[in-house]
C-alpha cells in the first residue's frame, strides 16, 4: 500500500483521536482522568485565547475575566433560578462576547504593552467586582465567599455527575468543535484578514482590510468560547469563587501556555497545554507543599528560555520533526 504525506497525516490524526476517545475505557483511575480534563481544559481556553492573542497579534492578559463571567452567569441562573447550565452556558457566552466587544472598542486602538496593560486592568477589575458584590437586588453574587453548587444527583440537564468521565467527554467534544472552528476560520477570508491585520495593520488596511472590525469579531469569538469554558469549570468543580475563576494567575497561565506552544498557530496552544500542564501538576503535587507557587516560577523560566531560543514557540521544532517523520514513513512505504 502506498500513502501520500497528506494521507499519513490524516491517518495519524484519526488514530490519535481514537486513542483520546478510548482513554477513559482503559484508564479507570479518576485522578488520572482528572489530569486529562485539566490538560484539555487548558488546551481549550488557550485555543480560545489564540483568536486574539495569536491571530490578531495583540496580547490579552485578562481572559480569566471571561471565564468568570461565564461561570457566574450560568451558576447564578442555575442555583437561583433553576435554569439548566446548558442554557446558562449560552447566556454566559453571549454576555461575555458583548463585554468583549465593549472592551475591544477602546483597547484595540492601543499598541503592544499598552493593550496588555489595559486587559490586565479589565481582568482585575472584573475579579474585584465579583469579590466585593454580595448582592445585586435579589441576585446573590456571593462576594468573596463564592457560590457553591449543590449536588443533586447525576443528570445531563443539570450538568452534574459524580464520575469524571462525562466531564472528560464534554471537554473533549468542546475542544474538537473549537479546533474545527479555528481550522475553518484560518482557511477563510476572515482568517487571512485577521492575520494580516495582526502582522501589519497599516499594510492590511491598504489592501482593503477593515482591521478593527476583524479584531472585534475575533474578540467576540474568543470571549464567547472562553466563557463557555467558565460554565464547564463551574459544573466540573461545583464551586466558584472570584479567586479561582477570575485570577490574574489564570489569565497569565492561559497566555503563557499559548505563547510557549506557539501563538498564532493552531497546534501551538495544544502542544503548550500538553507539555506544560502535566509538568505544572507534577511540580505542584511534589513540590507544592515545600515551595508553593514554584510551578509558576518554572513556567516563567520556560517562557524566558522559549522566547530566547524559539520565539515562534515549541510548535516550530516539533512540527519540523513531525514532518520529517511523515516523510520517512512515505519513503519506507514506497521501498
Amino acid at each position: 500500500m502506498k500513502f501520500s504525506e497528506k494521507q499519513i497525516k490524516l491517518i495519524l490524526l484519526m488514530l490519535s483521536a481514537i486513542v483520546v476517545f478510548l482513554i477513559p475505557v482503559f484508564i479507570k483511575n479518576q485522578g488520572y482522568i482528572q489530569i486529562f480534563i485539566v490538560v484539555m481544559f487548558f488546551m481549550y481556553i488557550a485555543t480560545a485565547w489564540n483568536f486574539v492573542g495569536g491571530f490578531a497579534g495583540v496580547l490579552p492578559l485578562g481572559n480569566a475575566a471571561f471565564i468568570a463571567i461565564g461561570a457566574y452567569t450560568s451558576t447564578i441562573l442555575f442555583v437561583q433560578y433553576g435554569i439548566s447550565p446548558w442554557v446558562g452556558m449560552l447566556a454566559g457566552g453571549i454576555i461575555s462576547a458583548i463585554i468583549g466587544i465593549i472592551i475591544g472598542l477602546p483597547t484595540f486602538k492601543l499598541r503592544g504593552a499598552y493593550f496588555a496593560l489595559a486587559t490586565i486592568a479589565f481582568g482585575e477589575g472584573i475579579k474585584v467586582l465579583f469579590q466585593n458584590i454580595d448582592k445585586i437586588g435579589s441576585v446573590n453574587v456571593g462576594g468573596a465567599r463564592g457560590i457553591l453548587i449543590s449536588y443533586s444527583g447525576d443528570s445531563f440537564a443539570n450538568f452534574q455527575w459524580v464520575s469524571r468521565i462525562p466531564y472528560y467527554y464534554i471537554i473533549l467534544v468542546m475542544l474538537i468543535i473549537l479546533l474545527a472552528i479555528t481550522v475553518f476560520l484560518m482557511n477563510s477570508k476572515m482568517g487571512y484578514y485577521l492575520i494580516a491585520g495582526g502582522e501589519d495593520p497599516e499594510a492590511a488596511a491598504s489592501l482593503g482590510v477593515n482591521v478593527a472590525k476583524y479584531k472585534l469579531i475575533a474578540m467576540a469569538l474568543s470571549a464567547f468560547f472562553t466563557a463557555i469554558a467558565g460554565t464547564f469549570y463551574a459544573q466540573w468543580i461545583l464551586y466558584i469563587l472570584p479567586k479561582s475563576v477570575g485570577s490574574i494567575d489564570l489569565s497569565f497561565e492561559i497566555a503563557f501556555i499559548a505563547i510557549i506552544g506557539g501563538r498564532g498557530t493552531i497546534i501551538g496552544p495544544i502542544l503548550g497545554a500538553l507539555l506544560l500542564k502535566p509538568l505544572g501538576e507534577l511540580t505542584r503535587t511534589y513540590l507544592g507543599g515545600a515551595l508553593p507557587g514554584l510551578h509558576l516560577f518554572i513556567l516563567g523560566l520556560i517562557l524566558v528560555l522559549v522566547m530566547i531560543y524559539q520565539p515562534r514557540g515549541i510548535q516550530e521544532v516539533l512540527t519540523k520533526i513531525f514532518n520529517r517523520f511523515v516523510k520517512k514513513m512515505v519513503t519506507i512505504k514506497r521501498s
Binding site: N187, K189, Y193, A196, G208, V209
Partner: peptide, 12 residues
C-alpha cells in the same frame, strides 16, 4: 498576495 486578492471574492 492572497490577502490582497480577497478584496474581490469571499472564496479562498
Amino acid at each position: 498576495v492572497t490577502v490582497g486578492a480577497f478584496v474581490k471574492t469571499q472564496h479562498k
